[in-house]
């Protein structure tokens, strides 16, 4: 494992997006940063800026109004990036399933890498999901590099 891959695993910067849910999962994510759970011991830093983030935590059912915003945020994040759907609403639509005015679930809008089910999720589950996402970051970067090599070879 190279030094950059190691440090990528050690310093995930997180952007936290609420797409119009009930705020239950938001509170649990904030609880992760408190002394009891302390996600920052894994190097997690919460930024409000998609351009600095590695991991996007999405909470709540994606409403139609929010569809454009969330694709915009996703496109602004630099590679390698991981999207984590937090809570049942973001994973499957939850109790809003089949309702008008929303997209169903997050994976219909942007590609999702990790699902954290639960209504609402436990902080332990959020930390578990974040740690799962760290391995995916390096896998994604390797895939991007391979594709670059292939496209260079083809050209």
């Amino acid at each position: 494992m190279s030094l950059i891959e190691l440090s990528r695993k050690k310093s995930p910067w997180v952007i936290h997006v609420g797409t119009g849910g009930c705020n239950g999962c938001d509170l649990e994510i904030l609880a992760c940063l408190t002394p009891r759970f302390d996600a920052s011991r894994f190097g997690v830093m919460s930024t409000g800026n998609p351009k600095h983030a590695d991991i996007m935590l999405v909470v709540g059912p994606v409403t139609l109004k929010y569809k454009e915003i969330i694709t915009n945020l996703y496109n602004q994040m630099p590679d390698p990036k991981v999207v984590i759907a937090v809570g049942t609403c973001a994973s499957t639509g939850g109790i809003y399933q089949g309702c008008y005015g929303h997209c169903g679930s997050l994976d219909k809008v942007v590609p999702v890498d990790v699902y954290i089910p639960g209504c609402n999720v436990r902080p332990e589950a959020v930390i578990d999901g974040l740690v799962l996402g760290l391995d995916i970051l390096n896998e994604k970067e390797r895939k991007i590099l391979e594709e670059k090599k292939k496209s260079k070879g083809a050209a």
Partner: peptide
């Protein structure tokens, strides 16, 4: 809190270069 390790700023910089 437990807090990040002392070498955390270097992890951050190395990650940004990747």
């Amino acid at each position: 809190r437990a807090g990040p390790p002392i070498v955390q700023p270097f992890y951050d910089v190395l990650k940004l270069f990747g």
